[in-house]
Write a protein that binds this DNA or RNA. Sequence first.
DNA 1: CACCAGGCCGTGC
DNA 2: GCACGGCATGGT
Length: 245
Amino acid sequence: MNDNLREILLGGQSFSWREENDGSYSAVLNNRVYRIRNLEDAAKDPFLYDYFDFAYDYDAAARAIAEKDEILNEAVRSTGTIRLLKQDHWTATISFILSQNNNIKRITGLYDRLSRRYGHEVEDGRYTFPTPDEMKDVTEEELRALGTGFRAPFILDAIEKASLLDELDTLSFDDAMTKLQTIKGIGPKVASCILIFSYQRREGFPLDVWMKKVMKEYYPGKDPSYFHPYEALSQQYLFSWIRNK
DNA sequence: CACCAGGCCGTGC
DNA sequence: GCACGGCATGGT
């Protein structure tokens, strides 16, 4: 099965990656710039090997998902093999707080503005995403001036409670969901995205406006347990499928 | 002008 | 418990 790198990197699970003019992709991660053309490039680097979750057999999962029903079969065929990235906890948390009632293009723009304003430069024009410590003196006015809008107080609350993110790995999925939602601006959808795309919790099933349409139209009366044990991956295939259809 | 975007919060019932 | 309006901003 073909890996669809564009969908993996730019399709809404990460806002760190940029497509270059030569067709390669780049991101500032781990305090440096990474550039790749394909997944084989990523497999050669120890950090990216872990980030792209090479320990998991995504081809086998895609085959199993495609056999589940006709809709999933079409979603997998039309999308190519998808991966779930293992992103930094803090970066994912702020990214998905920014994502609420927003679109991918604007989320990416806000991500860049936060990086440029509060992160540090590692190459010409390339900035790290700021750490909680780098953002500790941020004010609501500054955040609003950057365009975060009503999400500004949510970001401030996340900065205060950032240490909580280190405690989630030891918790059950339900307890981690509950704990994440003690941060303002994090509800069930944002919490499940954070747990999937940063904590490798494959039982998450984010219901955004696109997925609510999919469930209503193609899976009436069913709930996420129907997709077990591939809730998160199935959701991601369906999300990509409906959005690109 | 309206309506939408990887939603959530506060209020009212 | 569920339904509803409001919310910043930029695009169509």
